[in-house]
Amino acid sequence: MSPTVFIFRQYRFFFFSREEPRRHVHVRSPDGEAKFWLEPVIELAINHRFPQRELKELELIIEDKADEIRKHWDDHFRT
């Protein structure tokens, strides 16, 4: 199961239900996929095909939505 946290333009922000316990979020679009750690700081973990400029934009989106992402994470994994 991979619950969607939100969709922004062509990007889907989500996480996998049965993955590592450290908070993180995946981002997928038709052009690539990436994984960002949410703690201890927001940083890129894995990148597949996104250029650096786009990664920086994604990081800014995640920073802006960090509280929402963490809430979704906590709500999902508490159940």
Rank of each mutant, 00 (worst) to 15 (best):
I61L: 12
E68C: 11
I7H: 09
F36R: 01
L58R: 04
W37Y: 10
F36H: 02
W37A: 11
A34M: 01
V27A: 04
L58I: 14
V5Y: 00
H26Y: 11
E43V: 05
S29L: 09
L58E: 05
I69Y: 00
I42S: 02
K71C: 04
H24I: 06
M1Q: 09
E59N: 07
T4D: 03
S2I: 00
V5E: 00
V41Y: 08
A34K: 02
G32D: 01
S2A: 10
D31F: 11
L58N: 05
T4A: 01
R18G: 15
L58G: 05
F36E: 01
K65T: 06
R18N: 15
W73V: 10
I42P: 05
E19R: 12
R9T: 11
L60T: 13
S29E: 04
H72T: 11
F6H: 01
E54T: 12
R53L: 15
P3A: 00
R18M: 13
F36K: 02
F77E: 05
R70Q: 11
H24M: 07
D74G: 08
A45V: 06
F16W: 14
K65D: 08
I61K: 05
V25F: 02
P51L: 07
F8L: 05
P3D: 01
Q10G: 07
E57Q: 13
F77G: 10
V25Y: 03
I62H: 02
K35Q: 05
D67N: 11
Y11E: 01
E20R: 14
H76S: 10
V27I: 12
H48I: 13
E43Q: 14
